[in-house]
Write a protein that binds this DNA or RNA. Structure first.
Lengths: 194, 194
DNA sequence: AAATGATGTTAATCTAGTTTAACATTTATT
DNA sequence: AATAAATGTTAAACTAGATTAACATCATTT
């Protein structure tokens, strides 16, 4: 397992000693998922939060009519899980599925408690991570309300250019909350305009 | 200042000693806002996070055309601030305004750092608070995508019955992302249906 | 009690985005 | 190379929700 990306990432928020770093690494696990595999399924108790070493995942909700609504994508150096299910160990509302083969460093709910007690600095680290996730989530709500679908698509490309190139278009449409047909129309409009 | 509601609230997440409690109380401040006063304005650097002792606030975004989009309401025992601005001390995207006269216990950005160093348990406390806020925010995104306006309104009433009764209807419409006229139509439909 | 401003309603017209369905293109599998 | 599966496009008919505008009701101030 290549733990450097995770340790570098943590370093941006808190400074761990060498001992703390190796304790941390001894308590997490590495796992490889194949494209299309599920990390969490709606209804499961989400046992892990994963730090992505490589790959790409989508977190989505299936509604009554079986339609898929993507809440967020995650790529290298992002975190992936059903946060609600993980923190309260209750059945997941969301599915997390790999869009590409994906390598994770997994923090399991059971051992994480122990880790936080031994390295209290990690409380601060996770607080900061979650704060940033909350900010993105609130901004997403606003974009949704105050922009047309076309404007949202333009912003999405600016905010997440790599993701836009890596995931199929119909998933981008689902993330934006529109149909794939309408996104297709928007794209052809944008081509005509320029 | 009546600090009991805050201390009781904290007790649900972490246990503080009497000394820690009094240190905490010595580092926060009490403030009363009148109805319609702003706690934060778009563009300000948000210096505080407030715990609501009494009253009600709305956090909203003003778009290009001057339209107001409400991200969230907050009432007693909830937290209110522009999280993005507070955590990165950058200009606020949102306004926070009082819908009623509102009493806050304010945690200021500058003294909070000191407080967290002296009472590391608070890192955990704030992490848990933010985690819960993130979960609500993600659920809100999903409701928005997978429900019709009518369904959203019904869920809103179930989730936040007190808020629905306390705030004017046009603000509920703004929160739901629809016009006040359409909410009015929905309400009259619901009356006919029952 | 009159007047002003804030909040809520109704109805007609309009539009952004959906639905359906047929077809085109790209990618993976044999 | 041929076939199947997945992804993307186009266009017509449709609908949820927006816009406009006129009016109704409630609350606050003088």
């Amino acid at each position: 397992m290549n733990s450097k990306p995770l340790l570098d990432y943590i370093k941006r928020y808190v400074n761990l000693t060498k001992e703390e770093e190796s304790l941390l690494i001894s308590k997490v696990s590495y796992r490889k998922y194949l494209k299309n595999q599920y990390i969490v399924q709606q209804g499961d108790i989400c046992k892990i939060t994963g730090f992505i070493l490589s790959g790409c995942t989508k977190t989505f909700y299936l509604d009554e009519s079986g339609q898929e609504h993507i809440v967020l994508f995650a790529i290298e150096e992002w975190w992936t899980s059903d946060m609600g299910s993980y923190i309260s160990q209750s059945p997941a509302d969301f599915n997390v599925q790999c869009i590409e083969n994906t390598e994770l460093i997994q923090f399991s709910y059971d051992t994480n408690e122990e880790l936080l007690l031994k390295i209290p600095k990690l409380e601060r680290f996770f607080r900061k991570i979650v704060e940033r996730a909350l900010v993105s989530s609130q901004k997403r709500i606003i974009r949704n309300f105050s922009l047309t679908a076309k404007e949202q698509y333009i912003q999405f490309k600016e905010l997440y250019p790599t993701i836009e190139k890596r995931v199929p278009q119909y998933m981008v449409a689902s993330y934006l909350g529109i149909t794939k047909e309408f996104l297709s129309k928007i794209k052809s409009q944008l081509i005509l305009e320029q």
